[in-house]
Structures are given as structure tokens and as C-alpha cells.
């Protein structure tokens, strides 16, 4: 079998697997997946499917501000979901905003997976003092709410970094803050699974062959502990998107010139009681649907990967 046949073979195995079957027979999951994929794809290709670049001040006209959605009396076809106080087209702003939200979500989850999985593997495999030190740090951190950790890191980083770099580094800061606040979950899970795998005979067989601990950890143990990581990763993607929205809502996230979903909601809530409800409702609904569908996907993954529930 060459590499191509192996890929084909793996694909055929996947189509025949219980996971694929369980996916196909769960309509809720299929709908959630389609929804999530559509939202993510729309965010990625936003410039191609939106009439306006809401991050470009030159394309905005304050005279268009507070236009209502198209189906109301004052609606305009140019702005299907209406505009905000700056005259930004909400439809465009939501898609551009979700790019930031989803991008920050993915990046921070990947960051926390890299940190959490590596530390968890080392703690579980090496054990002893190394394990104790890593896990105590994780314990301390997990006893603070993720939002608090993110706020704290955000504040510290902002005060340490020069003021001029705030705008440019805002995204990096927020990804780092969120990533650092959720890694202990991955570390804990991976440590537990690693300790189970470590005692299995295939790991001992690899030790008898003479493989180094690093090779055993990353080549043998890692692929066998990734199942739960995938589940937690999916659920944490939703959490990270929400965290970013919360931070932006609180005004410590991305700059208001490049609003994410959370920023849009913050802007919108000022006008909720003056009648311009659409500014807060549409970004809110989009965020809720995104988080819900990712969560549903995560729930299903957890059940599908847990042999006890199958």
C-alpha cells in the first residue's frame, strides 16, 4: 500500500466506522454541524459575500447610521439587517466580526491544546515531582474563573507592552489570555488518560525495545489520548468564542475600530432601549447559534467517543 492507498483505506474505514454511523443517525448533530460549517465558511469568505468592509472607515457614511432592517418601513436593500450608529452594514459587520471571534476562538484553543496536552503528557508519563509541580499550577489556575484569569493576563500584558503596540497586538494579547486560561482542562484530562495508557503493555513493549521516553510519549501515547482532547477542544471552542465576546463586551478585547461579535453587542446594548434593537439582537443571535451548534457537536462527540454510552 502506498501513501495514497493508505489515505483511501483510512477514508473507507472512517465511512464504515461507528462514529460516522452515529453521526449520520443523529439529525440534531447533522443540523448543528451544517450550521457551524456554514457560519465558519461565511466568516472565512466574508469579503467575497459582503457589500461593505466595515473595518474600513472610508466605506462608512454616518448618514446611513441607524437604518432599520430591510423588512421594516425604513429599511433599505443596501443594508439587509440594518446599520449601527456608525453607519456600518450589520450583515457585513457580523460576518467580519465573527471572523475575529472564530479566529480568536480557534487560535486560543489550539494554543491551550499545545500547552495543556504537552504538560499533561509529561506530568502523566514522568510522574513524581514533575507531575506534582505541573498539576499544582493547573489546580491553582483552575480555581480561578477563566474570565478572571483572562482579564488579569490582559491587564498585565497591556501594562507591560508599550502603549503604541496595543492596537496591533490586541489580538495576540486576547488569544494568549484566553489560551492560558483554559489549558489546565486539557492538562488534567491528558494526564489522566496518559497514566492509564502508560500502564498498558504496548507502552511497556516500546520501553523494552529501547525507545526514549519522548518517542513513547509522542508516538505511542499521544495518539491514544487525543479522543477526549477533541471533545474538550470542541466544547472549549464555544467557551473561547464566548470569552472573547465577553472580553470585547467589557471593552478589554479587540479595538472598536475592528469590532468582533462581542464589540457589536456592546455597541448595540446602548441603543436597545432607544428602539434600535437590531444592533444588539442580530450579532447576539449569530453568536448564540454559533456557540450552540459547536456545543451540540461537542456533546455528540463526547457520547460517540465514549464506548460506555454507545
Amino acid at each position: 500500500m502506498g501513501p495514497v492507498e493508505r489515505i483511501q483505506d483510512n477514508f473507507a474505514r472512517f465511512l464504515d466506522s461507528d462514529i460516522w454511523h452515529s453521526f449520520r443517525t443523529s439529525p440534531v448533530t447533522v443540523v448543528a454541524t451544517v450550521l457551524a460549517v456554514v457560519m465558519i465558511v461565511a466568516a472565512v469568505i466574508a469579503p467575497l459575500i459582503t457589500p461593505q468592509d466595515p473595518f474600513d472607515p472610508a466605506s462608512l457614511d454616518l448618514l446611513d447610521a441607524f437604518t432599520a432592517p430591510v423588512w421594516t418601513e425604513d429599511g433599505l436593500w443596501r443594508f439587509p439587517l440594518g446599520t449601527d450608529d456608525q453607519g456600518r452594514d450589520l450583515y457585513s459587520a457580523i460576518l467580519y466580526g465573527s471572523r475575529i471571534s472564530i479566529g480568536v476562538g480557534f487560535a486560543s484553543v489550539i494554543l491551550s491544546i499545545i500547552i495543556g496536552v504537552t504538560l499533561g503528557l509529561i506530568a502523566g508519563y514522568v510522574g513524581g515531582t514533575t507531575d506534582a509541580v505541573i498539576m499544582r499550577i493547573a489546580d491553582v489556575q483552575i480555581s480561578f474563573p477563566a474570565l478572571l484569569v483572562a482579564l488579569l493576563l490582559n491587564g498585565v500584558l497591556r501594562s507591560v507592552l508599550p502603549g503604541s503596540s496595543h492596537e496591533t497586538l490586541a489580538l495576540v494579547v486576547i488569544i494568549f489570555s484566553i489560551g492560558m486560561s483554559i489549558w489546565p482542562q486539557f492538562a488534567r484530562t491528558v494526564r489522566g488518560s496518559t497514566m492509564v495508557e502508560k500502564s498498558k503493555e504496548y507502552v511497556q513493549a516500546a520501553r523494552v525495545i529501547g525507545l526514549s521516553s519522548r518517542a513513547i510519549m509522542f508516538r505511542h501515547v499521544l495518539p491514544n489520548v487525543m479522543g477526549p482532547v477533541l471533545v474538550i477542544g470542541t466544547i472549549n471552542l464555544a467557551i473561547a468564542v464566548l470569552l472573547e465576546a465577553t472580553l470585547s463586551f467589557l471593552g478589554v478585547g479587540v479595538p472598536p475600530t475592528e469590532p468582533s461579535l462581542g464589540t457589536l453587542i456592546r455597541i448595540g446594548q446602548d441603543f436597545l432601549f432607544s428602539g434600535e434593537w437590531w444592533i444588539v439582537i442580530f450579532p447576539g443571535v449569530f453568536l448564540a447559534l454559533l456557540v450552540l451548534s459547536v456545543n451540540l457537536l461537542g456533546d455528540w462527540l463526547r457520547d460517540a467517543l465514549n464506548p460506555k454510552l454507545r
Binding site: K200, E201, Y202, A205, V208
Partner: peptide
């Protein structure tokens, strides 16, 4: 070390799945 090898008890746990 190379000249010795081991065979384990549990055929379900001794091969990386």
C-alpha cells in the same frame, strides 16, 4: 537490551490500537 525481547500477557493491550 537489543538481544532480549518480551511477550506480554494481554494480547488486547500489548499492541498500540
Amino acid at each position: 537490551q537489543r538481544r532480549m525481547q518480551m511477550i506480554f500477557q494481554d494480547p488486547y493491550a500489548s499492541l498500540n490500537p
